[in-house]
Design a protein around this nucleic acid. Structure first.
Lengths: 209, 209, 209, 209
DNA sequence: ACCTAACCGAGACGGTACGTCACGTCTTTGT
DNA sequence: ACAAAGACGTGACGTACCGTCTCGGTTAGGT
């Protein structure tokens, strides 16, 4: 995790860069083993081979640390090109569901969302580093579908933005609710049903004046 | 709350009935003022005019207490009869959004959902006392729409159940995501867009078996 | 145990006589198993097959209960007639040491003595039901020794009383200290040495007015 | 108090030296005001201007703390040189009685002795830090008396040790019993009588083969 | 043969203190 | 100059007993 060059002595502060990665990895590891509420910063520091002070020097607290640790997980999402809008959506929703099914994501993400209801800065941090960052997938999917002729080009840019937001709320919300609240896996069958509903709704919506 | 069996002889001093109500009210009050993470059971006990031990005698911990306190909030949901399925859905979704916008609901609910990712009993408690309990609204709405001829009578009961679950995941999930993650109110306009998407999707789904 | 006044009308159900004995026995049992500091009145009540209320109706608290429970132990002391004052003393001191070596006596007695340093009523209760009650042994021993001609008849009654008190303090104190503080058994050898010292001291004292 | 080994590397912030003294002083203060059974470690910590955790970091519990707090009291004992063995003994016994008459000593000491009947480590702690530590007085008194010719030089070292122990049990035990159980002060008169008895006994004992 | 008052068991109640844990801050020493 | 180690004040935790208070039910007098 930290020893890369055991030959060269590390005088000064060569540590800084590695420490960040080690801490975030340790945070995810601790989330898996203990879950949000039993995760302690002291334990994270120990796992990362770092002093507690070092940790506090870089993050304000548990919330901020976990947001950063969890946000990295979502960067692995990619929009597959399966030939049709429906298939593309199904693919990315399944990936999203797979990430959410991982204990470090589920436990950590919901907890910081809960905290963010009383902490605007935290909500903004979540929005920008988790949500907004993945909106690229919706945009990319739409433009690809437009290229295929499955969707008409948007006319009103403002309404288009509203639709992106709506889709995001529906997709992310439904998968989260299915996985965490209903307690069932968002598996192939469910994703197919859900995608059908979503596409049907979008079609209907776009058809209406 | 949990006593089901008056069959067992009631020996000794009976539990105070008022205490339960006072504790749940105090819990909601504390949720509003402090939020989940700063809510302490000692404080709740004090607010309720009750000893900490009394509280622990009835609830296993913070999680269970908050589930019960929050669950009561959702009992006030009613399905309005506005003449059309779309209007009915808009009405109940707006009510749901209004409850979620209340700080005691948002903070508490998300937190216990986060906790429930590592505690199956807690998830089940949430499901049965919050989610399942409100599924009545979907059922009632559907049967009313069927009466009006807006929806065909279901043929396959199993598929019908799956659809109810799907609707619930989509509605609850979308509203929660909109309110808590995106950080925008689920207002009239948004609800209208969302309802249109949902109904369109359902129509499309039922049309193409 | 303490009811002296049958003057007050005895209406209603009378107190169970068996309960008293059961409670005191249970107290001693609990003292053996848990020791003073871990002895709880709830546990004593359970052992005695009695409700906590019954116990509190009869004793003011742990201290008073333990004094009564322990006091009974010392009633089995008898002054043996072994033919000489020295032998008599050795006999009774050995008996006393044997009682003190029992865990219910040691743990309980020292604890209530400690408590009695801040509670005059408790000290008086200890004095009257434990100490004063056994002073009979000193008196009996002295009169027997006088009968044998080993001790002269007392001339000054006040001084005689003072001597009895002194003997009691020395005997009881020394055995307690040997057993509990020094942590050694007050065995045959020690008792012989101690008795020699005591008798020598008494002889010397009475010789030199 | 307990740290003896500077051999172990001293890393991290060292323990506050002042805290130890403040805690022991606060303990004695609380013993005076509340007595053993109402003394709480939380209160001691508050009085000492120290956190409860600091206290628990250094002492295992109430018992150990009180032993250390009380032990310091006995360090002020000195053997006066009054010219004769009897006078020396009277002097030191009076000092001992004066210490025992102080509420912090009486309440605390008896209580830990009571506890020690079920805790060998505690008894050993009491023995070594209270009892054994003051045995110096007996040794010094004897050697001084031997210098004066009041006592013969000991011949059998083993018997001499036994005698020291016996004297200690008799002196300490008698004073404690007089003070705490009989409830009378160990005043000048009583000490004179007691010393006479003790010296007479020792003389008689040493005279005997 | 009832009354009826005091007893009894059970167990919930408002409290207090416990001993532990994690927090976030602050000294130290070492490199 | 910064990092590790770890002690510090703070405050909540969940538990254990305390001594009191209902409860429903029992048990002996006194009438």
């Amino acid at each position: 995790m930290q020893s890369r060059t055991p030959a060269t002595r590390a005088s000064g502060r060569p540590r800084s860069a590695e420490a960040d990665a080690a801490i975030l990895a340790a945070t995810r590891e601790a989330l898996v083993e203990q879950g949000w509420s039993k995760l302690t910063l002291g334990d994270v520091a120990t796992r990362a081979g770092v002093a507690k002070t070092t940790l506090y020097r870089r993050w304000a607290g548990k919330n901020e640390l976990v947001v950063d640790a969890v946000a990295e997980l979502f960067d692995e999402l990619v929009l597959p090109d399966r030939g049709s809008l429906a298939a593309d959506i199904e693919g990315v929703v399944l990936q999203f569901a797979a990430i959410l099914a991982r204990p470090e994501a589920a436990s950590g993400l919901m907890a910081v969302v809960a905290e963010s209801t009383r902490d605007d800065a935290l909500r903004e941090r979540i929005r920008s580093s988790v949500v907004e960052r993945q909106k690229r997938l919706v945009l990319e999917g739409r433009s690809r579908a437009q290229g295929r002729g499955e969707l008409p080009p948007e006319t009103d840019p403002e309404e288009a933005a509203r639709t992106v937001d709506l889709i995001f709320d529906v997709v992310a919300g439904a998968v989260v609710h299915r996985t965490l609240v209903s307690g069932h896996a968002a598996d192939q069958d469910w994703v197919r049903d859900f995608t059908a509903l979503l596409l049907g709704g979008l079609g209907a919506e776009t058809r209406q004046p």
